[in-house]
Design a protein around this nucleic acid. Structure first.
Lengths: 233, 233
DNA sequence: ACAAAAGTGTTCTAGTTACACCCATGT
DNA sequence: ACATGGGTGTAACTAGAACACTTTTGT
């Protein structure tokens, strides 16, 4: 709810509040997640993230949760402001189990981010990160992640798969212009197993009829037969 | 993510972290939500909730977020521990916009709770609440709620409707034993508009065949024709 | 010519909707 | 008898899965 006895002062012990971002992309037909190697404290692989800025708490209450997530993503990946602005963030939930960070009570709000493959190439380590790299989701469980980040990744991944079709998640993982085959490749990568190409095409045709996707003049010239190019409306 | 420079001490300004619970039930064919009249500070209607206990932050990090929500619900409704234990809580999300509470930076984690009508009758105001009452959801937008609780209510309501069928939400809103008509009444109340009775029955029959619902020996004797009684498996 | 991907068509099934209808019972 | 809710039947429509098939290109 909110304070009542002790408003601004902080008579009770307060937790730290952080944001963590699970950024996904599709590269080389594989669903990948962005992990950073922490430059500080527990030197392990982790999701990009950090503490929410609270200002001085009296005249300035600081930044929004989403703004914090976007800022952390920007700082640790060195993606420019303009590029990060294109990335939409979805809140997945708060993780606040008591000893998730043994050093202090930290409650973390997890965010899901979808990054276009074109942008994904630009990420490089920044600020608190010693390294930043895209890791195959299939390989993640083999890694040793900091804190409860394995749980957070699992939750974000579930959310991503759940919202694949509704909530136009796929649109944020393909280049602006794409062929049906490319879109199918992305969806297959997210789902994990390939689906029927014919049915997929039908589904896309439905989206075209609904105006969600529009046909774009050109044709993509591939190694094989050229395909019609589309774009999200 | 987590601390690194300043772990336990709190070098940066820390926010307060609260939990708010949107508890729903169905009474008199209406979907209702539990609101309390705050006994403290901003004297307005609000969701039951309060601050997360963080222990001393060094040897004891305090309680889990869900535990905090359950505790607040128990304290402010005076429902016994055993009864509250039956209520399942689902996390809806974190609300942390900068000036949602003008007095201090407060980040609140919202929880959705479903309460059986049998239990709903037992709630009465407790601890920080001057009053506690069940309010028709349809009437809520007319009320003046504390902080951003209107937003929280909207999010929880959306979540409730979304998960109505999957994630067996309905089971937590009906008495242990129920007739098809009663179950339909609850679902209709949540959805807002009544559906087709015949199709609903068919759907329930499907659940029976799947073993989700089982037929219970007795018959309910109503004002009209007695109906078969069912229970969730 | 051949492989490979683009693109079309067809069938089967299951689920949802809408609506007509009978049944049992308390008043 | 009759209104009311319990309970059944059915036709129309829709979405999806499975799979066979043709077309177009680069090599």
């Amino acid at each position: 709810m909110s304070p009542a006895p002790a408003p601004s002062t902080g008579r009770w012990p307060r937790p730290l509040v952080a944001v963590d971002v699970a950024a996904f992309t599709v590269l080389e037909s594989d669903l990948k997640i962005l992990l950073i190697e922490r430059g500080l404290a527990p030197r392990a692989l982790a999701l990009p993230g950090g503490f929410v800025r609270c200002g001085d708490v009296v005249v300035d209450q600081g930044e929004d949760l989403e703004a914090a997530a976007r800022r952390e993503l920007r700082e640790e990946t060195r993606l420019e402001d303009g590029l990060i602005g294109q990335v939409r963030l979805r809140q997945v939930g708060a993780f606040g189990a008591p000893d998730r960070d043994p050093r202090a009570r930290v409650i973390s709000v997890a965010w899901l981010a979808l990054v276009r493959p074109e942008l994904a190439a630009f990420v490089r380590a920044g600020s608190d990160a010693a390294d930043a790299r895209w890791v195959r989701v299939a390989d993640v469980e083999g890694f040793d992640l900091a804190f409860d980040h394995h749980r957070i990744v699992a939750a974000c991944l579930a959310r991503l798969r759940r919202d694949l079709w509704e909530g136009d998640v796929a649109r944020e993982l393909v280049p602006r212009a794409f062929t049906v085959g490319e879109l199918r490749g992305v969806v297959d990568a997210v789902v994990g197993v390939p689906g029927d190409a014919a049915n997929f095409r039908r589904r896309v045709r439905g989206l075209v009829e609904d105006g969600v996707i529009v046909e774009v003049p050109g044709h993509r010239v591939t190694a094989r037969r050229p395909a019609q190019v589309y774009a999200f409306a």
